Amino acid sequence: MISLIAALAVDRVIGMENAMPWNLPADLAWFKRNTLNKPVIMGRHTWESIGRPLPGRKNIILSSQPGTDDRVTWVKSVDEAIAACGDVPEIMVIGGGRVYEQFLPKAQKLYLTHIDAEVEGDTHFPDYEPDDWESVFSEFHDADAQNSHSYCFEILERR
Rank of each mutant, 00 (worst) to 15 (best):
R33Q: 13
L8W: 04
G95L: 01
V75E: 07
V13N: 02
S138D: 09
H114V: 15
A26K: 01
I91N: 07
P130L: 14
A83Y: 06
G95P: 01
Q146C: 11
M16S: 12
W133H: 05
H114K: 15
D144V: 05
I60F: 14
A84H: 12
P66A: 06
V78W: 15
E129S: 10
E134P: 12
D132Q: 09
P130Y: 07
K38P: 01
R158H: 07
H141A: 05
A84P: 06
G121K: 00
P25T: 10
S148R: 00
P66E: 07
A29V: 02
E134N: 09
E90K: 02
F31L: 04
I60K: 01
V88P: 13
Q146H: 08
N37C: 03
V78L: 04
G86E: 09
T123G: 01
T73I: 06
K58D: 09
T35V: 01
Y111L: 09
T68I: 08
S3Q: 02
E90M: 03
A145K: 08
D142H: 12
H149W: 00
I5F: 04
P21I: 02
A29P: 00
D70A: 05
E157Q: 11
P89R: 07
W22H: 02
P89F: 09
A117R: 08
H124K: 13
V99C: 13
N23F: 03
A83M: 10
C152Q: 13
A7C: 10
Y100T: 00
R52C: 09
A145G: 10
K106V: 11
L62K: 02
V99G: 13
Y128N: 04
E157T: 06
P53K: 07
W74L: 11
E118N: 14
I2K: 11
D127R: 15
I82T: 09
H114N: 15
P55D: 10
L28T: 00
E118W: 09
P105M: 11
V93C: 10
R71N: 10
V10Y: 03
D132L: 11
E120N: 14
S148Y: 00
N34S: 09
I91G: 15
P55Y: 12
P66W: 09
G15A: 00
Q108E: 08
H141T: 09
S63K: 03
A19K: 04
G97V: 00
I94T: 03
